[in-house]
Design a protein around this nucleic acid. Sequence first.
DNA 1: GTATCTGCAAAACATTTGCAATTCT
DNA 2: AGAATTGCAAATGTTTTGCAGATAC
Lengths: 144, 144
Amino acid sequence: MEIKQNEIIEFMRSNGIKPSYQRIKIYEYLVKNRNHPTTEIIYHNLIKKIPTFSRTTVYNTMELFIKRGIVSMISIDEKEARFDADTSVHAHFMCTICKNIYDIPVKSGEVNISGLKGFKVSENHINFKGICKSCSKHNKSEIN
Amino acid sequence: MEIKQNEIIEFMRSNGIKPSYQRIKIYEYLVKNRNHPTTEIIYHNLIKKIPTFSRTTVYNTMELFIKRGIVSMISIDEKEARFDADTSVHAHFMCTICKNIYDIPVKSGEVNISGLKGFKVSENHINFKGICKSCSKHNKSEIN
DNA sequence: GTATCTGCAAAACATTTGCAATTCT
DNA sequence: AGAATTGCAAATGTTTTGCAGATAC
């Protein structure tokens, strides 16, 4: 993903977030690495560039980003939270073999649950687990 | 929910689970209280009846139940895991005001995500958050 | 009598909190 | 200077692990 610092700063300001150096780097990481990282992954990657960087800042910043709606939390992996800079409606699929998390597009009308009538839905978390295409192939060839 | 100990024992055996006293009580609790309890809630309720009962046993037992497929884990509340003895396909809705977790039926065809083609889905976790019917009413009357 | 199950105590993690130092305007 | 942000260190809360004793077949 290509994104310029200027655009990030602009984007943060328009969402009521003061663009500190740490916040910019964190958001930049999220946009450039669409890998649904954990707090630890973000910390691990940015401590290289920012020697005084702390986990607390990641926690603080994620909380702020979520409150301002520019990041959403994914709880597909019950051990630790993961984050996604793509806040549009989409599902996730986690492969139980390779542990990869895939973004799954959800087209309009593909999720239409009549039982939700009367509930005011503000967040949706649609997560699947199983075996991804790539791991299915490998398994097949091993068996045959 | 009405269920007899005999039925539970039968059911466990048919799923390859040795029916110990603790396991029976835990499963009985899950079936009679369809409230998606946390480990702590289960522990808290059963320690009353089993003075030597331990949290470890709850963790061990839930792991076993999940492995044998008679219970599923709900991660709608990222703080702690919740459990559901209803393993059929259905969604969950957590009210951000009253914190209640509702079971939402999902009829055949209501979730049909074409982007999942090629993925072998073995688990689905469809969770929503927002304001439930009851809390919506109260809010409305406060505002008007 | 051997396997399994249970439960205590300690350890391991992820996350939160308090607060002092730093940074920004 | 004043307000917000950062980050260290300690606390918290959930879950896991090691192991000894209890229980079941």
